[in-house]
Design a protein around this nucleic acid. Structure first.
Lengths: 175, 175
DNA sequence: GCTAAATCTCTTAGTAACTAAGATATATAT
DNA sequence: ATATATATCTTAGTTACTAAGAGATTTAGC
């Protein structure tokens, strides 16, 4: 096998391995939501709030791709559960900031313990230098995925008849 | 900063970076479903079918965590869209295998092109040896996530009053 | 072999969470 | 000031989900 061909094979194997592990990551998230007894979108918003801190309802809609109406429902449920608080912005009173209540971090975070333990075990098999490489990849990968998401979203703005549409939604069973 | 403390900080940074990039990965998947015009679960099943090949309806339910009734709906939509075919097992006629129709790979796969391109660009910055490290990590990480998912699912079998429940579901807005 | 239990998918009825459109409240621009 | 824009919420209708159970087929016990 030639040098470049070996690399091509490596890249393909890597792509599949990443795809597989990220698919399993999605399933872990679904399981967390399930065990915690909250909707998937609710957990996703908690995750965004954890990473971004206090954000507006509109920002949640933007990031998750949900409508603002759907976000109202998400925040209603999370607020009623005592996980987040609505905080009106005094500078611009149209805005509503959503903030995680302190104890919620722990209440939700406990369900990530199995994942953290598994990851600590995996990381244990790597040297500091190797971990730094993984960190570099994680950061670059994040930026790559972010760019890819933006590129894909661009397709939504292209005229629908000009892009291939699978037309799967709004299908009802045959009588 | 001491040697071990440096590693602890590195691990924490790594965890956050992974969490961030995997969250963005979820969003990419949602965007694909959106652009393709199919439900999230439908795409998830297509992904499983791509990775595992021909699988039974029951296996899809097991892997996705959906009920078999929900899978019937997923497969109905995918079949009507011409992306999969139901194939009754002749050896055990209760079983229904779901198989991706050949052209569907391309029809769905096109939406992963932006991601592949972004990843190729990222991978370009790594030597073969480094890529092999990433591959090793991806494989070990997959196993770790798989184990973590199983561990978390174990909580579902523990008596609900014995485990911390967020009790968020089935909440309705106040009148 | 024949009956009972188990297994696999599908059906049905009801529910939760979503979208689309527009209402409301506040902010910005002319 | 008035008009336009922005941010969230509300309402009505839709979609995809669950729970429970009905077929259809297979496996186990006698």
């Amino acid at each position: 096998m030639s040098r470049t061909k070996a690399r091509a094979a490596l890249l393909q194997e890597l792509e599949e391995a990443m795809r597989r592990s990220s698919a399993q990551g999605v399933l872990y998230g679904q399981t967390v939501a399930n065990v915690a007894g909250i909707a998937n979108s609710d957990l996703e918003c908690m995750d965004i709030l954890y990473l971004e801190g206090r954000v507006t309802a509109g920002r949640l809609a933007e990031v998750t791709g949900l409508t603002t109406g759907a976000i109202t429902g998400v925040v209603d449920r999370l607020e009623k559960a005592g996980l987040v608080r609505r905080e009106r912005d005094d500078a611009d009173r149209r805005k509503v900031f959503i903030a995680v209540v302190p104890e919620a971090i722990e209440r939700v975070g406990q369900f990530y313990v199995p994942m953290q333990q598994a990851m600590e075990k995996v990381f244990g098999g790597y040297s500091d230098q190797e971990l730094r490489l993984l960190l570099r990849f994680a950061n670059e990968g994040y930026k790559g995925v972010l760019a890819a998401t933006a590129a894909l979203k661009g397709l939504l703005d292209t005229p629908p008849e000009k892009r291939p549409d699978l037309k799967l939604k709004k299908l009802r069973r045959q009588p």
